[in-house]
């Protein structure tokens, strides 16, 4: 699934009902690192379930090694799908030449995602068959798999240690992708103990070398329940390039349904 950044940030920004809610006893009691890691992942998912649908705007700033910058602007609509990956529709506003290009994704827990692209210049919808999850998204340092909706089943977990980041207590969990065609051997994720939000992920390439680090900040609470990080910075340690993603105008329960996420809605998307 490539419900894109939206879902990504859902994942990053897991929510909590009340701050004083007692922490899942499976986490505190677990002694086995695998079990503890899995419990943390489940808690993350649990706190980010039930949001329904959302819309948001994102700006992506790509920076190369010489410091040259380029912007991309995309509106993202998302629909939560229970029991499978989410659906998402991304409409490109900038660069100017791809304005109106729309990208529809049905992500799946198993198998390839379904992807359609509407090309306004041809006024046609093209279907893309690609099993690729590891490639860069719009030339940025984010790969598809960094942006897809978080599903517990997609990884094996191992709790590493507790840590502190910006004065917050964190869990550090190692995750190993179980799905086909991942570009990573593993990731290390920093999750705060209070709200189970992702603050940092370190990515390791298939030969085990440090590849990228993502830092998430500017968290805001929506519907009194769902946290969303409004700034994500991804730095590639091997190429020296980086990408900053900024989110704005988050809206929930905007009345989107299945009919807004099919091939004919793709043509109408503006």
């Amino acid at each position: 699934m490539k419900p894109l950044l939206m879902l990504a940030s859902l994942f990053f920004a897991s929510m909590t009902l009340q701050a004083n809610e007692s922490v899942n006893p499976q986490i505190t009691d677990a002694t086995d690192p695998q079990a503890k890691g899995l419990a943390i992942a489940k808690e993350m998912k649990a706190r980010n379930t039930g949001w329904g649908d959302s819309e948001a705007k994102m700006t992506m700033i790509l920076r190369d090694k010489s410091g040259n910058e380029t912007d991309r602007k995309v509106r993202v609509k998302s629909l939560e799908v229970e029991g499978d990956g989410d659906k998402s529709l991304s409409i490109f506003d900038e660069p100017r030449d791809v304005e109106g290009t729309a990208f529809l994704t049905y992500s799946h827990i198993e198998g390839n995602d379904d992807q359609w692209l509407f090309l306004p210049a041809l006024k046609r919808v093209k279907r893309i068959s690609s099993s690729n999850k590891s490639g860069p998204w719009m030339g940025s340092e984010f790969a598809y798999e960094d942006l897809s909706s978080f599903e517990v089943e997609k990884y094996d977990y191992k709790f590493l240690r507790e840590d502190e980041l910006d004065g917050r207590k964190m869990y550090v969990v190692e995750s190993y992708p179980t799905y086909e065609n991942s570009g990573y051997s593993k990731t290390n994720t920093w999750i705060d103990q209070e709200h189970f939000r992702v603050h940092r992920i370190e990515f390791f390439d298939t030969k085990g070398d440090a590849l990228k680090t993502m830092n998430v900040s500017d968290f805001k609470l929506y519907l009194d329940k769902y946290w969303r990080g409004h700034k994500q910075v991804m730095t590639n340690h091997q190429t020296g390039k980086s990408t900053v993603v900024k989110w704005s105008e988050y809206e929930f329960n905007t009345g989107l349904d299945e009919s807004d996420f099919n091939k004919s809605s793709l043509k109408r998307a503006r």
């Binding site: 692209l117 893309i128 690729n132 030339g139």
Partner: peptide, 8 residues
């Protein structure tokens, strides 16, 4: 854009 989105 389309091609870019499909490469691993």
């Amino acid at each position: 854009l389309m091609y870019e989105m499909s490469l691993p």
